[in-house]
Design a protein around this nucleic acid. Structure first.
Length: 114
RNA sequence: UGAGCGGGCCGAACGACCGCGGGCACAAGGCGAAAGCCUGUGCGUGAGGAAAGUCCGGGCUCCACAGGGCAAGGAUAACGGGUAACGCCCGCCAGGGGUGACCCUCGGACAAGUGCAACAGAGAUAUACCGCCGGCGGCUUUGUCUGCCGGUAAGGGUGGAAAAGUGAGGUAAGAGCUCACUCGUCGCGUGGAGACACGUGGACGCUGUAAACUCUAUCCGGAGCAACACCGUGGGAGGACACAUGGCCGGCCCGGCCGUCCUCAGGAGGUGGCUUGAACCUGCCGGUAACGGCAGGUCUAGAUAGAUGGUCGUUUUCAACAGAACCCGGCUUACAGGCCCACUCACACA
RNA sequence: GCCGGUGUGAUGGAAUGGUAGACGUAGCGGAUUCAAAAUCCGCCGAUGGCAACAUCGUGUGGGUUCGAGUCCCACCACCGGCA
């Protein structure tokens, strides 16, 4: 994954939580905000409340895979933070993908399909 | 065959496509003075038996002391060995459990001193409440009566514990008061490397508690890779130079700030620390074993918002507990399912 | 990743190894009041029981002790600190 496409700093996350737009469903919460780059920058939050390390890793890897396979559908130029909620622990990949894309659609992050 | 007991090992596998971390090589392009960086292609590599809990022991780093001792605080605790070290492991002893294989035990000292032992009970570390016995008295009652003084730990009930146990002698009644046997502690002798075992009338009979203080023996300086070392933006403090010009505050003078260099502290961020090690595999030798020695071979993650996922096919059943973060040795806890070895008991067969 | 701390009725919080829940807050019942507040009295952990009472109860499981909320060991949950 390109390092320019990841959010790292705590301050970036704080800015999105306080000033970004958000969308919620049982699997994820998505925050987003325009940035000045030509690419999207993604950050993932999976807290210890969701489970132990193996569970958290699985959720984060699936979220990252969902974005990788669907990246062509996204509009460029946004900072995006994806926060996993507790329902995403037991969810299948397909359900998680549907939930993620649903939330992004609410925010208007996806390209308008023909 | 069934039931069991002890130990060891594995921890889904293979294939296809897309994708990720690290390494090596390649050469095309871009940036750059260069070193190099980015993109690309190929090869090879990429979590565990517990990676977990952070409970012990070490390495490593910094701080302190720099030699030795004492005190304080903490840890350990039969004995012998293994180990870099350990609170771990092996063997063994004692005690306990099991028909047995085998298992369990925080297993020094209360016989150095101090403390504590609620309630119950007459009495709790020594005790006469009831009882038993003797003496001296008392009497409307001469008793299976009663008062006083004394002896007595056999019997009673309470308690976790009542002062070795059983029997006999003895006595007014009794008592390790005496004797026999037994039990325990200390001493002595023999065996053993030792814990210990066996013997022994030589002495003694002593409540429990040290996961109470304490004593004895041994060990321990403190903090932790978010340690620590280096580079270092902006801003800060001190000193030196300049005090010319210019700018800002100010009506002007005076005054303050803005400059350059050096030093100091600090530390956004970055680099190192970072993986070859008390390492692993195979064989031989020594040892009951833990383990040790020798020879040959192997290189086996190193990230930094933190690399293993998705889709599909086959095998049986779509698999448990679970993810490295400086590194090792252990312990503890979690765990679907499976394999192997040794042994025990019961039954059957030869 | 490392280091440290805390768990007791609904709740805050006491309890020297010796009857567990002192003392508050909240709750329930009663008195007082036309009614409420305040005040006073009583109850107040769970289960069974009409009651008397019995059993279990200090995060969980073991151990030491005659006896553990307390002492020791292991685990669980929660909280805090270190860039």
């Amino acid at each position: 994954m390109d390092s320019r496409c990841t959010l790292k700093k705590n301050s970036d996350f704080r800015r999105l939580y306080s000033k970004g737009q958000s969308a919620v469903n049982p699997y994820v919460v998505v925050y987003c905000r325009r940035n000045r780059e030509k690419v999207n920058r993604l950050g993932y939050t999976v807290s210890t409340k969701l489970g132990h390390a193996v569970v958290r890793n699985r959720v984060r890897r699936r979220l990252r895979e969902i974005y990788r396979l669907n990246a062509h559908k996204f509009k460029p130029g946004y900072d995006i933070v994806v926060v996993a909620r507790s329902r995403s622990v037991g969810a299948s990949y397909q359900k998680l993908e549907a939930g993620f894309l649903n939330a992004c659609g609410k925010l208007g992050l996806l390209e308008e399909r023909l």
